[in-house]
Design a protein around this nucleic acid. Structure first.
Lengths: 149, 149
DNA sequence: CTGTTCCCTACAGTCGCTGTAGGTTCAAGC
DNA sequence: GCTTGAACCTACAGCGACTGTAGGGAACAG
């Protein structure tokens, strides 16, 4: 943080390790609107705005959606309230992460069985295709109303 | 499977538990093109086409992409070859699943610490916001070039 | 022949960016 | 002051795997 403020969009992008277009996208989504522009219309970011970007990026790395982050920012702005809602968002998100882990684990188990039993013969006898073609091969009830993503 | 063939798109969709539009999408992507249409232009699906749909759905539940599935179908069509390529696709996919599990586990750990330490006070003291605002709070080096999705 | 239900094509929207086209502004060097 | 080149601007299309909508045609029962 040896930068001198305000920063241009390119400087901020570089500092935060994101693309310039990402910053314009965050602005469009209402997450990070620079308070000032030059006479010619170019964006200039203050230190506070840079800190907000770090918050946003960090929350994204935690897997929070842009909508959730907007909500967190709005709640944070009313600093005097109980943080119960913020806690609730984080807990819901954790449940979501846990659910995804569970499904991926089941998937991994099935893929292990599938790959392990492929003897490397001809395609017509391929275990992988066989398993994919018939749900009865599966032990766990992955999917049939599942997640993806 | 007490249906009488050929099936209309709606009957097939219902049987397979997918939307009618999804079938049209699979056709557009070259995964499942019905061999016949009525004089009026409506799609009719044979039993073999229904079985292919089950293969496709099952592969999707395993997290294979539409591109990967097209590749699997193409390889399966040349039934006489070695199934090494099919095995390779499955193994690569398994690696991908494992990588995603690892990242989600790290995320879960951080969310646990975050949520666990929120005392339920005022927003200005909220542990969740604090952690999100400062990467130094994290033990694991999740992200900073991470996965998402 | 009418009515209802299903089907058709074509296109826009989802999410979180990324990439492109075509034009403008800024800062540095002369 | 003038020129150059990099960085900036807006607006829009594309990704993946669907989902939803609009406006119309086909199939079938009564």
């Amino acid at each position: 943080m040896t930068e001198n403020y305000p920063l241009t969009i390119g400087q901020l992008a570089k500092q935060a390790g994101v693309h310039v277009q990402t910053l314009r996208y965050y602005e469009q989504e209402g997450l990070l609107v620079p308070g000032a522009r030059t006479a010619g219309g170019q964006r200039r970011y203050t230190k506070a705005e840079c800190q907000r970007l770090h918050f946003i990026r960090h929350a994204r790395e935690f897997g929070f959606s842009v909508d959730q982050i907007r909500e967190l920012i709005d709640l944070a702005a009313e600093g005097n309230r109980s943080c119960a809602e913020i806690d609730a968002i984080a807990r819901r998100h954790r449940e979501d992460v846990r659910r995804r882990i569970r499904m991926l684990r089941e998937l991994e188990t099935e893929l292990d069985r599938m790959v392990g039993e492929c003897a490397g013969g001809r395609v017509t006898d391929c275990r992988v295709l066989e398993v994919l073609g018939d749900h009865d091969h599966c032990r766990t009830d992955h999917g049939h109303g599942g997640e993806s993503s």
